[in-house]
Write a protein that binds this DNA or RNA. Structure first.
Lengths: 154, 154
DNA sequence: CTGGTAGTTGAAGTGAACTTGAAGTCAAGA
DNA sequence: TCTTGACTTCAAGTTCACTTCAACTACCAG
């Protein structure tokens, strides 16, 4: 199982926590790259692990793959990204986290004062109408997607 | 457009913010109920609005429809749910919100101390491994889904 | 009674993020 | 060299929460 300092797909899968199928998918989507053996098998550089850590972190924070791709495209192709590169990338998450925490806190406030008291009003409820975008006139509020969950255990 | 005190699908859609198609979907899924006219058209009782407010709130908090259905099934069929019924239902959200906020805060801590400093480690990073479920051996960490977002504006 | 808007159904489509399956190829230890 | 397990590709399937479509029917103001 010696492969110089290049990693097989299984090794990367084991160390990153992503399934091989996900790694192939990410490659198709341009999120990670791999070299090939003469026989066409993937061989990953070690730096892909940090990249994958970034991807997982970003997903956990709630970014879509599209956003992740955009972020990764701001990294230099030529050289291995430095600490400063990663720091710059992660700065935008900080803001996002702050916003998400604020949103959830608002919801919790609303829970105490609104649903907790039983008023659960369509017009004013902070939970059914977060951010006080109360009773949108148009086509009505769109889908507001899923949250951060505990990692699957099984 | 007078319909006694029963509401048409359009009226419910306008007042709840859900599209008619979503209302039909929820009915198929057993989340809301409607009576029918002799011609087969839906007529909703006013109480469906509170039920829908509950559904939207739960979705915003991040519950799946499956979980919402489970929650709604604990409501009494016979009588109109009381404030106490709704309060009981919403209590579990409180816990969920607390957990989500805690998770995000942990992520933010991790951001400052881990990615912020450039260490971004697969083994220890609080962001790529939330809750310190570090480096799961098995099939690897599963998909950890999207966040709470700002409501669509368009 | 007529016309037009609003409503009905069932089936199929959407999009994100992958997974699964079939059919075949490569790598490496014995 | 053989064999076995790891790997390859491409296409299709999965889940969630709906939306869209086609074809048809109901409701009700005039």
């Amino acid at each position: 199982m010696k492969t110089g300092d290049l990693l097989t797909v299984r090794q990367v899968a084991d160390r990153s926590g992503f399934a091989p199928s996900a790694l192939r998918y990410y490659e198709r989507e341009g999120l990670v790259a791999a070299r090939r053996t003469t026989g066409g098998q993937r061989r990953y550089e070690r730096s892909v692990l940090r990249r994958l850590a970034f991807i997982r972190a970003a997903r956990n924070v709630g970014l879509t793959l599209e956003e992740v791709r955009a972020a990764l495209h701001t990294l230099p192709d030529a050289r291995t990204p430095t600490r400063a590169d990663w720091t710059r990338l992660s700065r935008s998450w900080r803001r996002r986290l702050d916003e998400q925490i604020a949103a959830l806190s608002a919801l919790r406030e609303g829970l105490d004062s609104c649903i907790g008291c039983g008023c659960l009003s369509l017009q004013r409820c902070a939970i059914s109408n977060p951010g006080d975008q109360a009773a949108r006139q148009g086509p009505g509020a769109r889908y507001l997607p899923p949250p951060l969950r505990a990692p699957a255990r099984e």
